[in-house]
């Protein structure tokens, strides 16, 4: 069974948006915890979240101050801001709406329920009291869709392109998150000794990988260990190495995969060269920048090879 290019493209975006909704919810939830733990003097701002998502220009068109209320409204309740959870959910749904015929029957019902839940609850959940419950509900509903898909979607093109979108988005979000740890995004100078472990721990939590870290590396949370773990651990499903290996497996059986494969292999080599021991924060930040550019190239290659091929 082959697949229409246009359908493959929508599935790819459905994978991306669903992952983005979940990851954004994780990010906000983890940050929410972190902010309560951090000493006041450290003064972490909520606007960090906007910066992680590269959404500063859009944000400051709408809001003057990057305070808790504004940032969370922007990320959790704004229907039309491209960085918000409702936006990601809406577009995941829109893409399912137009690919219902290749997905298991429950997909539409589940994603539609997720959409109805978010439309109804988002506005009420910006305040601290309902916030956590909302984020957890979004995460668990996204997981439900993913679980249902992974247990019933045949491993054909539909699965492949969904998975490509999902993995690419996940790599992108993971590298963005790690950039928080480099301090560049935090915009703070000087020492970080007191708050660093808290920040790295919350990053691991946002990646739902804290437990795995403790078991596989140990109880002490240290910057270099975390970076190595999150980028290079082949067994960790949210690590960059894991995502790239999976992307590779999905690309392999596709016709016309040379261009995407080349970029992917470049990424894998780059990953192998990462030496966390002597790396400065600045160097790590630069490395992450380059890596994100590579992921953008990979996205372009996928788009050009399978979604908008030249008319033969």
């Amino acid at each position: 069974m082959t697949m229409l290019s246009s359908v493959a493209e929508r599935l790819y975006w459905m994978g991306r948006y669903l992952e983005r909704a979940e990851d954004s919810a994780r990010l906000v939830a983890a940050y929410n915890h972190l902010i309560m733990d951090i000493p006041r003097a450290a003064e972490l701002g909520w606007d960090v979240l906007v910066r992680i998502l590269d959404a500063e220009p859009v944000f400051y068109q709408q809001y003057r101050v990057g305070n808790e209320q504004n940032v969370l409204r922007f990320l959790m309740a704004e229907q039309d801001s491209c960085a918000s959870i409702p936006f990601a959910v809406r577009w995941a749904r829109e893409n399912v709406r137009t690919t219902r015929d290749v997905l298991p029957e429950e997909t539409w019902e589940q994603i539609n329920e997720l959409y109805l839940y978010v439309s109804d609850a988002a506005e009420k959940s910006v305040g601290r009291r309902n916030r956590q419950a909302f984020l957890e509900e979004v995460i668990s509903r996204c997981q439900r869709v993913n679980g249902m898909l992974s247990s019933s979607l045949p491993r054909d093109h539909a699965h492949r392109f969904l998975r490509l979108g999902h993995l690419l988005e996940r790599s992108d979000m993971t590298t963005r998150l790690m950039d928080v740890g480099t301090g560049e995004i935090l915009g703070r100078a000087g020492t970080h000794d007191a708050t660093d472990p808290l920040i790295w721990t919350s990053l691991l939590q946002a990646l739902s990988s804290f437990g795995a870290y403790r078991r596989m590396i140990g109880p002490l949370v240290e910057a270099q260990e975390v970076v190595g773990f999150v980028f290079q651990e082949p067994l960790l499903p949210r690590s960059v190495a894991f995502c790239l290996a999976e992307i590779r497996a999905e690309l392999k059986p596709l016709k016309n995969h040379e261009r995407a494969m080349r970029i992917l292999n470049r990424g894998r080599r780059k990953l192998g060269k990462l030496q966390t021991e002597q790396m400065s924060r600045e160097a790590l930040h630069a490395y992450i920048d380059e890596f994100q550019a590579l992921l953008a190239d990979l996205h372009d290659a996928i788009t050009a090879s399978w979604f908008h091929p030249d008319t033969p």
């Binding site: 082959t2 229409l4 093109h157 392109f161 596709l254 091929p309 033969p312």
Partner: peptide
């Protein structure tokens, strides 16, 4: 023909 990820079908 339809445009697919495997080429025209």
């Amino acid at each position: 023909y339809m445009r697919t990820v495997d080429g025209p079908v």
